[in-house]
């Protein structure tokens, strides 16, 4: 019973995985790219740290680890909508998605989940290993830090997927299959901590960065990993993630129902 209920979602997950894994070159290319980017960022940060003796909210060693974690887990960022749905919107076949006898939100969520995890999985582990061995990335601060980091990473995946689904749904308001996503992704990128570590932003910006959901994708898990956020405060990170996951999933489901109603009225 449960199996037959879950089957369509697991099937789409597995199909997606297989498709993405076929692109061997993409995996290798992404790997090399991430290392290159990481190296550039690390060197730039080194140069900045050379310029001053004043104490900073984060030491260089932590910043280096932060950058490499970011490179390894780059794929988790909700930086683009589900490309398959984009194709469907462009060709006008997205209406067929409504015909499927499944909960569309759950279906799209499963697909986006694979879309986020599969490419990341391919490159994150070897990249993290290389960075740990050769590029100055530090291991987790403690076994406890590792555990809370893993928990927070799971939260980050769900948070990112919820955002991806929302980006995907917004496509249905456009003809070309592009749109809000183009504007949102650079914002997410900087607010999640991918441009520079969030603690290095001016102090007046910190409050807003703490409240917004995006730090839950990169910044907060990374800082748990390196002990920059103490274990005793780990629960605040997880709670912050949980609240935002609930809010974003609810918002996504509501948005999708609006989008599909609109599609039905317009006749696709």
């Amino acid at each position: 019973m449960i199996q037959s209920f879950v089957l369509p979602y697991t099937a789409v997950l597995s199909a997606r995985f297989r498709m993405i894994l076929q692109y061997r070159a993409a995996a290798i290319a992404g790997f090399v790219t991430q290392i290159g980017w990481g190296a550039i960022r690390v060197m730039a940060m080194e140069a900045f740290y050379r310029s001053t003796n004043a104490p900073q909210p984060m030491n260089l060693e932590d910043v280096v680890t932060y950058v490499w974690l970011g490179q390894a887990l780059l794929g988790l960022l909700p930086w683009n909508p589900d490309t398959e749905v984009r194709t469907m919107v462009r060709s006008g076949t997205v209406a067929y998605e409504l015909v499927r006898p499944v909960n569309l939100y759950a279906y799209w969520f499963s697909r986006s989940l694979a879309f986020r995890i599969a490419p990341t999985l391919m490159r994150s582990i070897p990249l993290a290993l290389l960075a740990l061995l050769f590029f100055g990335m530090q291991p987790p601060a403690s076994p406890e830090a590792l555990v809370v980091w893993l928990a927070a990473t799971l939260g980050a995946v769900l948070l990112s997927t919820a955002l991806t689904v929302i980006l995907t749904i917004t496509l249905m308001w456009t003809i070309s299959g592009e749109g809000v996503a183009l504007l949102v992704s650079p914002v997410i990128y900087i607010l999640a901590g991918m441009v520079i570590p969030l603690p290095l932003f001016p102090d007046w910006a910190q409050f807003a960065l703490e409240i917004l959901p995006f730090r839950g994708i990169c910044d907060a898990p990374f800082r748990l990993y390196m002990g920059h956020i103490p274990i005793t405060e780990a629960w605040t990170v997880l709670l912050h993630q949980l609240i935002w996951i609930i809010v974003l999933v609810a918002f996504g489901a509501w948005l999708l129902s609006k989008a599909t109603r609109r599609l039905v009225i317009q006749g696709g």
């Binding site: 900045f48 001053t52 650079p186 900087i190």
Partner: peptide, 23 residues
């Protein structure tokens, strides 16, 4: 989107100069 995409990079530079004064 393009404008924003490059702008966030520059915001990053501004923030770093705010912290470190010079490169």
């Amino acid at each position: 989107g393009q404008l924003l995409g490059t702008a966030v990079e520059f915001i990053g530079i501004l923030a770093l100069f705010d912290r470190f004064g010079s490169l």
